[in-house]
Amino acid sequence: MYALKLLEQSGMNECKPCVTLMEERLKLTKASTVARIDATLYQSTIGDLRYLVHMRSDIAFAIGYVSCFMEDLREDHWATVKRLLRYVKGTVDQGIVFPKTSRSGL
């Protein structure tokens, strides 16, 4: 399953799952003063999450929000992505299923 592979690649396969996608009233900013982080893992994880949106539309808004900070990455931005990954871990059995149907039905 793609979600499990994504968790493993990002080093979050043993994380504690959570049931909420983002913190309530979360305010991230590009002018953050916390420590910078390496962009490689962040950008790779965001790319993988964007692909996961095809099967998990419930995470689309959150991924769009954290994608706004790709040029100047900080620890608080990464913490939000890690929470998103914890949500994926807690809801790994959810997704959109496209069943095979006959030509007469949708």
Score class of each variant (00 low, 15 high):
D72K: 11
A79C: 08
Y87I: 07
A3T: 12
L84G: 01
K100Y: 11
V34G: 09
S44A: 09
T45V: 04
R86F: 09
P17G: 09
Q9P: 00
L28N: 07
L21K: 12
T20M: 06
S57I: 08
K27V: 12
L21C: 13
K89Q: 11
Y65R: 03
E8V: 12
L106Q: 14
I96F: 12
S102H: 11
R50Y: 09
V66Q: 01
A31N: 15
G95K: 05
L28S: 08
G47E: 07
D93W: 05
C15T: 14
R56P: 06
D38A: 15
G95A: 03
T91N: 09
L84C: 01
A31V: 03
L21P: 06
T45M: 00
S104A: 15
T101P: 00
D38C: 08
F98D: 01
D48E: 12
T20R: 06
L49E: 03
Y51M: 04
A3N: 10
K5C: 04
R86P: 06
I59F: 07
Y87L: 10
S10D: 07
K27Y: 04
M22I: 11
G90S: 04
T40Q: 12
H77R: 06
H54E: 02
K89G: 03
K82P: 05
V34M: 09
V97N: 08
E23D: 14
K82E: 09
R103H: 12
D58P: 00
I37L: 09
L28C: 04
L73C: 13
D48H: 13
M22Y: 07
V53R: 10
D72V: 06
A31Q: 14
Q43W: 03
M70A: 12
T20E: 08
F98K: 11
T80P: 01
A60P: 01
Y2K: 10
M70W: 07
L73I: 15
Y51P: 00
G95Q: 05
L26M: 11
L7S: 05
Y2W: 06
T45E: 00
D48Y: 01
C18Y: 03
R56L: 08
Y65P: 02
H54F: 13
A62G: 05
K27W: 02
E71W: 00
G105K: 15
V66T: 07
L73F: 00
M1Y: 13
D58L: 01
I59V: 11
E23I: 07
K89D: 01
T80R: 02
E8T: 14
F69R: 02
K5A: 09
G90Q: 02
A31S: 13
V19C: 08
E14H: 11
K89F: 03
L26Q: 12
W78S: 07
W78H: 13
F69H: 08
G95N: 07
V92W: 06
L28H: 07
L7N: 05
I37M: 14
K89V: 02
I59S: 01
P99E: 13
R56V: 04
F61K: 00
M22A: 11
V34T: 15
D58Y: 09
C68T: 03
G105R: 15
S32L: 02
K27T: 05
S67P: 04
I37G: 00
T45W: 00
V19T: 14
Q9V: 05
S57C: 05
K16V: 12
F61S: 01
Y87S: 09
K89Y: 09
V53W: 01
L41R: 05
K100R: 15
M55Q: 13
L41E: 13
L106H: 11
I37N: 03
